Simulated scan of single mutants.
Amino acid sequence: MAYIFAVSGMKNSGKTKLCLLLLKYLKEAGIHVGYIKHSHEKVLSPMDTDTGKVLSQGIPALYWGVDGCRYEKPGEISIYDIQNRIGSNFDILLLEGGKSFPCHKIWLGEADTCPGNIPGIVAYYEAIPAKKGGRDDTKRFFSFGEESSIADFIIALYERSSERLSLIIEGEKIPLRPFVSDFIEGGIKGMLSSLKKIDKLNGDIAISIKKEKDK
């Protein structure tokens, strides 16, 4: 399951510019990184297009072309749903925006520009010189030119925060005690190791259980 780290701040604070630099450094460090941009604007294909007509029926669509593909899903989606659907393919997902999402994040700008209800802030990237006094010593502060250090900071958080097992049910992450997590992990690996064509279990394991049809 991918570790999500957000780059948050007010509008026009430079989030995209910082994300591009962080993505570069994370990739150079050998991290399999993906990028998510959260927006308050509409992002789905217009309803008068072929894809839009499919989406209007509440059906997800994948738009496939010669240069790649784009997946579109109507309706609300949680951060855990994103982790569940694409997180197994990445080490880290860098999220641009997502102020309200419950994940670690760096805030662009002075600490006093950040609303008090923003969860998960672990660092600040100051777009203007820091004011004297009033700093939160429990947070890290970075300045222009220290983007590679921010990438190292994110990697360290990823290595400390990576969970060996995550349980997602209908887009909601279920908290597990260490004993329960170890029990489930051991049981799954034990059963899988007995199957043919499975010589070793060194990589990630993804299991999906579909909802039973109503009888």
Rank of each mutant, 00 (worst) to 15 (best):
Ser148Thr: 04
Lys105Gln: 00
Glu110Asp: 13
Phe153Thr: 11
Gly98Gln: 09
Asp152Tyr: 05
Ser88Asn: 12
Leu55Asn: 04
Gly87Glu: 03
Tyr71Lys: 00
Gly133Asn: 13
Ile118Cys: 00
Ala61Asn: 03
Cys103Phe: 06
Pro119Gln: 11
Arg140Val: 09
Ala130Lys: 10
Ile86Glu: 07
Ser88Ile: 08
Ile155Gly: 07
Arg135His: 07
Phe144Leu: 14
Ile92Thr: 04
His104Arg: 06
Glu146Pro: 00
Asn84Cys: 11
Ile59Val: 14
Lys73Glu: 07
Val66Ala: 15
Gly58Lys: 02
Ala111Phe: 10
Ile92His: 03
Tyr71Glu: 05
Asn117Lys: 06
Pro102Trp: 13
Tyr125Lys: 03
Pro102Cys: 11
Val122Asn: 01
Asn117Ala: 12
Ser88Tyr: 11
Asp112Ser: 13
Ile118Ser: 01
Glu110Arg: 07
Arg135Pro: 03
Gln57Phe: 14
Ser56Met: 11
Asp81Pro: 07
Ala61Glu: 00
Cys114Thr: 10
Trp64Asn: 15
Arg85Asp: 15
Asp81Gly: 08
Arg135Phe: 04
Gly134Pro: 09
Lys73Phe: 02
Tyr158Asn: 10
Ser148Val: 09
Ile106Ala: 00
Pro119Gly: 10
Tyr125Trp: 12
Gly97Glu: 01
Arg70Asn: 09
Gly68Glu: 06
Ile128Gln: 15
Pro74Met: 06
Gly109Leu: 03
Leu93His: 00
Ile118His: 01
Ser149Phe: 13
Ala61Trp: 09
Ile121Val: 13
Tyr158Trp: 06
Lys99Arg: 10
Tyr124Glu: 04
Lys73Thr: 00
Leu94Gly: 04
Phe90Ser: 04
Gly65Ser: 07
Phe90Ala: 06
Ala111Cys: 08
Ser78Gln: 05
Cys69His: 10
Ile77Ala: 10
Tyr125Phe: 15
Ser143Trp: 06
Ser78Phe: 02
Glu126Phe: 12
Thr113Phe: 05
Tyr63Gly: 04
Lys73Met: 08
Ser100Trp: 02
Ala130Thr: 10
Gly133Leu: 03
Lys132Thr: 11
Arg70Met: 05
Thr138Trp: 10
Gly133Ile: 10
Pro102Glu: 12
Ser88Cys: 06
Glu96Val: 05
Gly120Gln: 12
Asp67Lys: 07
Gln83Ala: 10
Leu108Arg: 03
Cys103Tyr: 05
Ile59Ala: 01
Phe141Tyr: 14
Ser149Asp: 15
Asp81Gln: 13
Lys139Ile: 12
Glu76Val: 13
Tyr80Met: 06
Pro60Ala: 03
Arg140Ala: 15
Asn117Phe: 08
